[in-house]
Design a protein around this nucleic acid. Sequence first.
RNA 1: GCCAGUGUGGCUCAACGGUAGAGCAACUGAUUUGUAAUCUGUGGGUUGCGGGUUCGAUUCCUGUCACUGGCUCCA
Length: 637
Amino acid sequence: MNITLPDGSIKQVEQGATIADVAASIGAGLAKAAIGGKINCAYADLDTVVPEGATVEIITQKSPDARQILCHSCAHVLAEAVQILYPGVQIGYGPATEDGFYYDFALPSPLSTEDFPAIEAKMAEIIAKDEPFVREVVSREEAAGLFINQRLKVEHLHELDSDAEIIVRRHGDFIDLCNGPHIPSAGLIGAFKLMKVAGAYWKGDASREQLTRVYGTAFFKKKDLDEYLHNLEEAEKRDHRKLGRELGIYTMDPMAGVGLPLYLPKGARIIRTLQEWLRRDLYARGYEEVITPHIYNAEVWKTSGHYGYYHDNMYFFNINEGDADNPRYSEYGVKPMNCPGHVMLYKNDLHSYRDLPLRYFEFGTVYRHEMSGVVHGLLRARGFTQDDAHVFCTREQLVDEVLAILDLVDHIMSTFGFEYSAEISTRPEKSIGTDDMWEHATNVLKDACARHGLAYDINEGDGAFYGPKIDIKVKDAIGRTWQCSTVQVDFNLPERFGLTYRTEDNTEERPWMLHRAIFGSIERFLGILIEHYAGALPLWLAPVQVAVLPLADRHNDAAEELAATLRAAGGRVDVYAQNEPMRVKIAKAQSQRIPYMVVLGDKEIENGTISVRSRHEGDQGSWPVEKLVEIIADAAL
RNA sequence: GCCAGUGUGGCUCAACGGUAGAGCAACUGAUUUGUAAUCUGUGGGUUGCGGGUUCGAUUCCUGUCACUGGCUCCA
């Protein structure tokens, strides 16, 4: 029979061989490295006899999912240690995550990081024993007995299908309701570390009890753990909140309120540059820019449905339109989105099929009263600016419009060197619109992705209540993914606001409506860019492109003159005229990630040249002024 | 909103029951500097805010606000 090796090749082995035999037959090295086997996608132990005709994958430490298996096994070790140290603990779930694992516990008093050393020591003890993870199939009754003191496990047991095979996993005295896969024995865990504690709702449901979640990570080799920890430090250095302060991009003032960033001059420059850059592209692509109010009478939000659905997440206020003696209050709401404004603009005129598609865009600043626990620097703020657009079109035009948006997304994201992937979210349970509309719209989104050559995952039932959507996730320089662009079909607003157009046959038809954003939130996108580039924004976007560094006071005039020349070419230039040694000026400019530093001293002034230093490549030697002027002019929008 | 942790000068941190300290930054003065941080001096904090325990609180307790990490949420 055949087995599949990690490299994808096929190998024949004898009937009746166990997984361990199979591993051994591949060669001593691999056999030693084998950490588990997969039979028809169900994982089994090394002593499991491979059934006739089955395809077996021997997973080695180098296999892509090997570390996940290791991490999940380490979660068992964690639970085992906690159970020993805290008798009576209720254990929840303990899966592997992208970069480690966690295990949820219900304890009389929560754990803290101070408890980690003791738990880690106990885990190390368990790992040192190198006991096997033993898989057992038990009856439902046996399982109920085994977990008699584990109410969370019993709850899980009751939720399994009645005909499901009940698989438990023993390790030492620890037993878990879990079908794996696991490593053969705990000794393979070469290095692990508990990372943090957090609260987590049982089964992810905010209405249920909150458990203590312990996060950790594990590796086959100590070296890999060290590297992982080092990478975490590097990621921390890129944190946009830290760089945002160091680079003078934005600040938060507690007096202003939570989640309301204030942009410093450099931050404002970047945001305006991003906007201008996108604006030009959008004009070229047939979008028309509009401007709509920041507040609307509450009637608008009642019509749109936001008043009911999102009332607590919006900023509403009353204003006295009468006087002190005869007060007459009107209610207004600050916009959490720009759609109603664009819809009202559409309604400003009667529309013919000849007008369509109509593409309105706006850099619309919106305010959402996000829950206090979710605000996070620029990445999740309560006030932010969407690069928002709405497309009104016919049913037939829809697919080409989506395709055009995907093309735009591709252009924008590839400019920043982002790889990206797509997810299509389909009809949720609570939703409006007919089956036909949902089917057509969802197919249009799929079709557009296919035509664009964009692979997509399906998020079943994850669409908005008013229509399906495509979400674009970008991958940054250190491999993290961020959701940015979105394309959404909206069945709700055209209906609620009664939008129509005249067809060729002079009948009245409802237009189809698309929402789309490329950056999503411009400020959030800026935060992502800061982390992506570790603060070193590309030349065209850098708030300061050139730092002119006069060597001594007597060179300051020449420095100002050079700065003026560069500014005339569209450059953003700072002169470092303070009385400081060159190495200090260089250090300061460098820590500001300024793309070009120009040293100006007697030598340069005499020769009519400049000495240029690049932030990444260092000293570039002597340049004619024109060379830098040209580079700066090229980078101007 | 929930769970846990943390709040000390603009920033990064120390002191942890006995009158709050350093570095960076700021300001003085010196230095006029050649590719990642020169020397000198000065000023700056009712230790987030309120209450309690104590002879005495930055330190212990409590409430509150904010921040951090998660969870839930993200139209």
